[in-house]
Design a protein around this nucleic acid. Structure first.
Lengths: 179, 179
DNA sequence: AGGTACATTCAAAACGTTCTGAACGCAGGG
DNA sequence: CCCTGCGTTCAGAACGTTTTGAATGTACCT
């Protein structure tokens, strides 16, 4: 049994990562699994994880698969062992990039596409519209313009982060300029 | 009844904002209410909203209160009217800032506080630890360092966005520099 | 081939969240 | 001072999500 203080720190970190996961739209269990792995120098098996977190093995199995798919944990082959072992991807910058790249990017692009289609639809329908509807269409176009600007901003921010290909130490990032 | 194309655009925009709201951890209904208001030149009453979105008045009442609390919609007094009317805050930049300021900021600060406490706890317990536990504590401190760096990065990004007090046109934002 | 030790799957259950609508409260008008 | 029209509340229902554990699949060992 390890010291009290280590247990306390472990607990709050695991809980915090669960929270963070939930915040990013993942399941809390995924975050806790990641936290548990992150704080273990050695890789852990599914049974280890199920035992530590007191959840069913089935749940561990499914959630670990997701974590792997997101590039947040990696399977580790232990020779002579038949169990599956996992290790946390500890380069957080890489984790963030994985998630942003495969999820937020798509989301933003879809939004921009839908907005673009809306603009087209309104423009091409314009001469079939009553005077009243034309006014409303103009109003819609203004609002859609704002939304487009917002998503373009988001897109740019994403590309900037994703574009910095080097494994960037967070510590070295000191300033973000907008302008 | 308005033209077909207007209805289609309205629908997809409202749906999209519902999606966006969900993405940011709000209820989908909040997003749809905001969308409906955003696409209406005139303020709408609770009954208008309930009717348009086909949801109960009770739900509209509660969700609109939340939207107001987040600074995303505003009540509008219509003289001679006893109904409550709402208008969307249409400055998206302002909406973002409201949300980031009252929610993400706290979240990040709490995380940093917990992490700081963890570091203290580990350091002050260090001489009571067995050799083995000391090694583990060292490992924990490395992981915690990474997490701190991540949250400090997030904090800085937030402050940057929140710091730009002028009502910034998204269009004018062309570049984010990291370095 | 049979047995063992694991991982995976999935239907049912537990749980949490959101919605509804009836009941209530409140204000203004007649 | 009651009636009407509105907003708010909240218990229960509906719904969606997550968890569990038993059944199943799979690979290795003897």
């Amino acid at each position: 049994m390890m010291h009290n203080s280590l247990t306390a720190v472990n607990d709050s970190t695991v809980a915090g990562l669960g929270r963070l996961a939930r915040f990013f739209g993942f399941s809390e269990v995924m975050g806790r699994l990641y936290g548990t792995l992150l704080l273990n120098p050695e890789p852990l098996s599914l049974d280890d994880l199920a035992g530590t977190l007191r959840i069913s093995k089935g749940s561990v199995s499914m959630n670990m698969r997701d974590l792997e798919r997101w590039g947040v944990a990696t399977e580790v082959w232990m020779r002579g062992e038949r169990k599956k072992y996992y290790r946390a991807e500890s380069d957080l910058w890489q984790v963030i990039r994985n998630v942003l790249d495969s999820r937020e990017r798509r989301e933003v692009q879809m939004a921009l596409q839908v907005l673009g289609e809306s603009v087209e639809k309104l423009q091409s329908a314009n001469d079939q519209l009553s005077a009243e509807d034309q006014e409303l269409a103009k109003y819609y176009l203004e609002r859609i313009d704002d939304l487009q600007a917002f998503f373009e901003f988001a897109q740019m921010a994403l590309e900037t982060v994703l574009g910095s290909q080097e494994t960037l130490d967070f510590e070295t990032v000191t300033k973000i300029e907008i302008g």
